[in-house]
Simulated scan of single mutants.
Amino acid sequence: MSGGFPRPAFRYPILLVLAAMALSGCSLLRGPQQAPITEAVPVLVSPDGSTLVAGPPETTVQTEAAKPEAPPKPKRPVAPPRKPEEPPAPPVAAPTPPPAPAPLIVTRLIDRNQAHGLLDSEVQKPDGKVVGRAVDLVTDASGKPIEMVVNLQGFLGVGDRKVNFPWNVFRFTPNAKAATITLNLAPGQAPPADRSKAAAAAAGVATATRLPLLDATVERPNGGKVGRVVDVLIDGNAQPQAVVLDVSGMVSADRRTIAANWSALHFGTKDKALYPLMDLSDAAIAASPAYDAGQPIRAVSPAPPPAPAPAPAPAAPSSSTAAASTARASR
């Protein structure tokens, strides 16, 4: 330490305090100072949540640490829009052919060895002697034969007479080479005595219970004419099988005969007398095969009426309809 008074050790801090006071006093003398003007910086928020600070126009500062840019995802190929599926077309049904025309007649084949015509067939005794020829058949209202009219021969045609015999005294042999009808009279039984002309004439007249069938006109139920009976075919059991009808002039001017089944023949009453009926139309007669002595016998009958068409079955419900019905039922 040099001469003079010693300097106190604390003088340096005091000096610093005074200097600071002097500086602050200068600022007070200049008056209040305005705060510095700083430019506001807008803060932006990115879509991913990071905060962006807008800087100068040429730069944008991202406050968060820059994330590494992810590689672009490969784009999936865009499939073309699918068209709505159309329901499958229903199967096209084959056109229904027109129904076949209903048949007019049905036919039945009759063996010529099993049936023989009655008209003008020879009638013999059991010993084989011919006594006459059959000329008519008498039936009742049910169509059952009750008598046969036989023209008993005389000598050289003199003394011929028509006699009605019960049907059950005859035996029929259709395939016989000689007489096909045998008259089986009981021993000692003689033919009926001659009848008067009036009685003979009455025998050929139809009544309400009997009908001489040969030469009778067969009619339709509506009154139309079918034909005239010219013969009856009888089998070995003495059962009529068919009637032969002359249909000339019904459908054509030519002479034509057909065979009709006995079962197709019916009987009605008109003017208190029996008459034969058969429901054969003109078209059915035209479609009937002709009856010829040298051809097979095809007996016809009217065709039965067609059966009514069956009602169409109800359509089965579709799967969607069935599902909807099940859903409604479960509620």
Rank of each mutant, 00 (worst) to 15 (best):
M1C: 04
S2P: 09
S2F: 12
G4D: 02
P6V: 14
A9G: 07
R11S: 13
Y12S: 03
Y12E: 01
P13A: 13
I14L: 05
L16I: 06
V17H: 08
A19Q: 14
A20C: 07
A22P: 09
S24N: 02
L28Q: 05
E39D: 14
A40H: 03
V43F: 13
A54Y: 03
G55E: 12
G55W: 06
V61P: 02
Q62P: 11
T63R: 15
A65H: 11
K67C: 01
P68V: 08
A70N: 09
P71C: 02
P71T: 06
K73H: 12
K75Q: 03
R76Y: 00
P77Y: 01
A79H: 01
P80T: 11
P80G: 11
P81K: 06
R82S: 10
K83Y: 05
P84D: 13
A89Q: 11
A93G: 04
P97Y: 01
A102C: 02
L104Q: 12
T107H: 05
R108I: 10
I110C: 08
I110G: 12
R112C: 00
Q114M: 05
A115R: 14
L118T: 14
L119H: 01
D120Q: 07
S121V: 07
P126F: 13
G128L: 11
R133T: 03
D136I: 04
V138F: 15
T139Q: 04
K144E: 09
P145Y: 03
E147A: 09
M148P: 00
M148L: 10
V150D: 01
N151P: 02
Q153K: 12
G154V: 14
F155P: 11
G159F: 07
K162F: 05
F170E: 10
T173D: 14
N175K: 09
K177F: 06
T180F: 00
I181Y: 00
L185I: 04
L185V: 08
L185A: 07
P191Y: 03
D194W: 10
D194Y: 04
A198D: 06
A203K: 15
T207I: 06
A208D: 13
T209Q: 09
L211C: 08
P212R: 10
G223Q: 03
G223C: 02
G224T: 05
K225C: 04
R228V: 15
V229F: 02
D231T: 00
L233P: 02
I234D: 00
D235R: 08
N237C: 05
N237P: 01
Q241I: 01
V243P: 11
L245M: 09
D246Q: 02
M250R: 15
A253P: 00
R255K: 10
R255P: 03
I258G: 12
N261R: 14
A264N: 07
L265I: 15
L280I: 13
P289A: 13
G294F: 10
P296C: 07
I297D: 14
R298W: 07
P302I: 10
A303F: 02
P304M: 09
P308W: 00
P310E: 09
P314F: 05
P314G: 08
A315E: 09
A316T: 11
S319M: 13
S319V: 06
A324T: 12
S330F: 06
